[in-house]
Design a protein around this nucleic acid. Structure first.
Lengths: 242, 242
DNA sequence: CGAGATCTTGAAGCACATCAAATACCGTGG
DNA sequence: CCACGGTATTTGATGTGCTTCAAGATCTCG
């Protein structure tokens, strides 16, 4: 087991047992990095995927836009998250993918992934698990938007983002960098930006969270989790059985 | 290629190329069927999955319940749908699974699935694709609940259910059997049962749909799709590239 | 320093929820 | 075949959490 801070490896380790060669493969494939500007689409709806992106630094999202412009963000992508497996095996993108901040990204060509998919069974299983974990988050988001009110939703999302950053070593104490705009947050929670703003203010005034610049601090984690009736099971933080 | 009406085979065929042996395997595993009553939990949150269920007749759903009883249905399972892959590879269920009607179900033991997963590469890929297709539906549901109003949501859901039934040969003309209660529908759309009722009435009075007993007829498919701004891409009705 | 993006605030409206009660439906047993 | 009890649907009335609109304040960065 390599000693690493590589978020891609940290992520995949949670998706199942990997051998040294697998980890070497992951390290190798994320060696070449590209810095990319914010608000750049990595892939657009309808496109045929030819490579896989991995976010190493920064923040991205999946989203869909309705004909009249309404946007729904369906996932946030934190460092370590592979972006395109959900459609790599399908014929075409059913959603778009974009960066929300200036980011560092690695790309793996389709052939290289295919190669791993036929020759590296442990890794293949981990990739599959990785997409299943994304699916679990998606289910929880559906519950969040469908059955929780605005206040509960925001509590839930903030705690989830905190945990996911913690899992790849991107928190210190109870603080992490959250460079999302309130519009982004609103579009992920099915809220208006105005109401998002008011709800955040309430959380601050109640002392649940603090914000200085782009960094967010969870001041009262228990209160945040309780308000959200947060059940961390869906994050599958402990890896499967091999 | 076997000539069949077996919904499991029809479903998996849409998930990628299968050889004759794969189809024989699927047929064999769904030979033994069990009739099961409605409102029976197939699996509950927290459980460790030991087998995979396939619904052959009837209707099921995934759902989660918040501590205070609010329920959100996160997926409807139509005939042919494998129910438990999303968690088969993970450590434990992050949601529950239940039958909404009297159903006919086949079960495949964990070891048999594991066997297929190591010896049948085409089938493995199809299984993976199958879960990715579920994920695509989940994303669209998120958009539906997050950014569409009640009227649009209902239009969208009804058309989706019609298409999914059509794909496994369970429609005739524009009619299919929909044994869901209005409470079930409401819980899947993040609406109250009362508002669900009123929205359905509006759709009927406008002549978009008709209902006699448990069978639903789409009277004006174009209007339904237009109101929902339905884009069928997410259903991935055409299979991938192998 | 200026211009665009982002955040903030207030006011008004409405789409939806909630509550409560009446009606219709359906399977079961007598 | 009908009576019966539970479940599902329907209807009305009332309330509210959120949206929308619009304008002003603040931040950000070339």
């Amino acid at each position: 087991m390599i000693d690493t801070t590589n978020p891609f490896i940290l992520r995949l380790r949670r998706c199942g047992r990997l051998d040294a060669q697998d980890e070497a493969w992951l390290l190798e494939k994320t060696r070449e990095r590209k810095e990319m500007p914010a608000h750049r689409d990595l892939k657009s709806e309808g496109e045929k995927p030819v490579c896989v992106h991995i976010i190493l630094e920064g923040l991205g999202c999946r989203y869909k836009i309705l004909p009249d412009g309404r946007r729904q963000i369906t996932a946030f992508l934190v460092p370590g998250d592979p972006c395109d497996f959900p459609v790599f095996l399908l014929d075409q993108m059913d959603h778009s993918l974009c960066l929300l901040t200036k980011s560092v990204v690695a790309t793996i060509d389709r052939e290289e992934v295919d190669d791993a998919l036929t020759n590296r069974p442990l890794l293949t299983r981990a990739f599959w698990r990785s997409t299943l974990m994304d699916e679990a988050i998606l289910r929880e988001w559906l519950v969040n938007i469908g059955r929780r009110n605005a206040y509960e939703r925001v509590c839930h999302l903030l705690w989830e983002l905190f945990v996911r950053h913690a899992l790849v070593g991107l928190t210190s104490e109870r603080t992490f960098t959250l460079p999302l705009t309130q519009v982004d947050l609103a579009d992920s929670l099915g809220l208006s930006a105005v109401h998002m703003n008011r709800t955040l203010q309430r959380l601050k005034s109640e002392g649940l969270i603090g914000q200085t610049g782009r960094s967010l601090t969870i001041l009262r984690p228990e209160a945040l989790q309780a308000s959200a009736s947060f059940d961390n099971r869906y994050l599958h933080t402990r890896s499967g059985t091999g």
